[in-house]
Nucleic acid binder design. Structure first.
Lengths: 144, 144
DNA sequence: GGTGAAAACTAGTCGGC
DNA sequence: GCCGACTAGTTTTCACC
């Protein structure tokens, strides 16, 4: 059950990352396999935890969520970590949170509709610590 | 052809973000519609550009790409932007690049296998400008 | 581990409401 | 704008190599 991942598996994964709607048969033609062989490998990748799930790439701008920002968080004290995690779990506008070493304690990716909403988020964050905001004014590259 | 997006469309989108492999029929049961009505709405969302494509969520750790970092880039001079864009376009380990206001010129999300590879990336970046690295040591939240 | 053929399910298209 | 029936394509499961 502990199988290795060969180059073909990686190729299949890369194809699926680019477009998960491709059929197994179509992928099979590209990697010189039949559709059901590709299906078996995809299932293996899922069982191994390499593939965690399937999602859609969506455009936040078209839904009035055009504001993207990176917020570096500096917590006031060490006992604020639990409160911070509860805070981010309850907010839909916080898309991604990383515990980081370097600048600050956490770095989170935020997605809101207006600057007012971003301001409200930052204000709610203040009791926990300080922050530094980098507002995205253009995406050069995204999820290669 | 210029249609509005109602609450049902958003619900369908949220379901697809969580799991794009759900069938239209299954989604229809959740939003009280038939499968083909869901399919029509999904097609509408694609035509409107809200849904840009389908991808897989994959686990970099399982492929020996466990190092995640955020690099804030401070370009040396204004004429380095073109060179920087060419630089990031050619590197697979740079996953995401944002033009930002605030700290630095660009903020990019990097994904490498080892610290040596990260060091090599940063060294290659040096001719273009300075940088500040925040190494991710744990993901609290990811792509809600 | 991969291939081949049959079964179950799915999405897309048609007319009708 | 949505529903029901039909068709085409897909994934899945089986035995076999």
């Amino acid at each position: 059950m502990n199988e290795m991942i060969d180059a073909t598996d990686v190729r299949i994964l890369q194809i699926l990352i680019r477009d998960a709607k491709r059929s197994n048969k179509e992928i099979g033609e590209e990697v010189h396999l039949t559709g059901q062989a590709v299906g078996a490998r995809v299932r293996k990748l899922q069982d191994l935890g390499v593939i965690e799930g399937y999602t859609v790439k969506w455009n936040p701008d078209r839904l009035g969520l055009g504001l993207k920002a990176f917020v570096t968080v500096f917590l006031n004290s060490g006992d604020k970590h639990a409160a911070f995690r509860a805070f981010v779990a309850g907010r839909e506008d916080i898309v991604e949170v990383h515990r980081v070493s370097g600048e600050g304690c956490y770095l989170m990716r935020v997605q809101t509709g207006t600057t007012e909403q971003l301001g409200e988020l930052l204000e709610a964050l203040l009791p926990l610590g300080n922050y530094r905001v980098s507002l995205s004014i253009g995406v050069e590259k995204s999820s290669s």
